[in-house]
């Protein structure tokens, strides 16, 4: 590769054909991510993408950066360990609403608290797609199309923005797979913003939630600059309809990164046991 030629989105995609259904929102997310990484300008070997389990979590294999496809719900933990060991790398995590907010909900909460410098693509289609159509934590309580919960879940959905704000998230943006260019901009902004950045992507599932084709009518851009103080954000987004797009919150918390630079030898440490 010519080091001086600008990188393009194609430079960040692998040749593996995705398993996603035609029309899946995740194709756009892949494109937006590749575009954002091209804009970022770092070589692909300095980027790591970690995922869990689900359709969304197949993302790393379709890129050509370093990737880790872990187990269900644990991507944020793997990514945190990765970044803490290698602060020099650009670290991203990706996964769906089930992976991130159900089994992974605890790690999501603590990732927002901890504020390690990494970017999380939360690809939300309000369903478990890979296991063929169960309700997820973001599914409305009266959705009755799942064989597992034929009368609907009857359970209040998680609101990722509010959950994240309550946990102290430092950057929260919402994008829509139907607007990949804007999504690329949001992803890049999240990567550049220091600390834990959540990119909540509304990414329709064409197979199990065909009604989500109406999302393109529901999304609307935020009409203000990002909130920067949690109290202000709580007030502004108290009644958010979940379709507001743009950078919604951008704070200035210091990223979590223990200081390194200790140079004591292990032999010196061992001497401490001498009687």
């Amino acid at each position: 590769m010519n080091a001086s030629a600008p990188l393009t989105a194609a430079d960040f995609k692998s040749d593996l054909k995705p398993i996603w259904c035609p029309g899946c929102g995740d194709y756009s997310v892949l494109q937006a991510l590749a575009k954002a990484l091209a804009e970022l300008g770092r070589p692909r070997e300095d980027i790591a993408l970690v995922s869990g389990i689900g359709c969304s979590s197949r993302l790393p294999a379709y890129t050509n950066v370093y990737g880790f496809h872990g187990v269900h719900g644990r991507a944020l933990a793997v990514a945190a360990g990765l970044k803490l060991a290698r602060p020099d790398l650009t670290v991203l995590a990706a996964g769906g609403d089930g992976d991130g907010l159900s089994i992974g909900g605890n790690h999501f909460l603590h990732a927002c608290r901890r504020n390690v410098d990494m970017t999380y693509l939360l690809m939300d289609n309000q369903v478990y797609g890979m296991t063929k159509g169960q309700a997820s934590p973001t599914t409305a309580p009266d959705w009755c199309e799942s064989k597992l919960t034929p009368r609907g879940t009857g359970v209040s959905p998680v609101m990722p923005l509010h959950l994240a704000l309550a946990a102290g998230v430092n950057f929260f943006a919402r994008g829509f797979a139907g607007n990949p260019n804007e999504l690329a901009r949001l992803i890049l902004a999240g990567i550049i913003h220091p600390g834990f950045s959540v990119i909540h992507v509304l990414s329709p599932c064409v197979t199990f939630r065909p009604e989500q084709r109406e999302w393109k009518k529901a999304v609307h851009a935020a009409d203000a600059e990002p909130a920067s103080v949690p109290a202000e954000a709580f007030a502004r987004f108290a009644a958010d309809d979940g379709f507001t797009t743009g950078i919604l919150f951008a704070g200035d918390r210091t990223p979590f990164m223990p200081s390194r630079g200790g140079t004591t030898s292990v032999a010196t440490i061992a001497q401490g046991f001498a009687a």
Binding site: F68, V71, V78, H110, P258, G262
Partner: peptide, 21 residues
């Protein structure tokens, strides 16, 4: 000695962080 220890939120996080590192 120039390493790092992080307190995890549970054992699931601890072992997965170890894998990531």
């Amino acid at each position: 000695t120039g390493g790092v220890l992080v307190q995890a939120e549970d054992e699931l996080a601890a072992i997965n962080m170890t894998i990531g590192a």
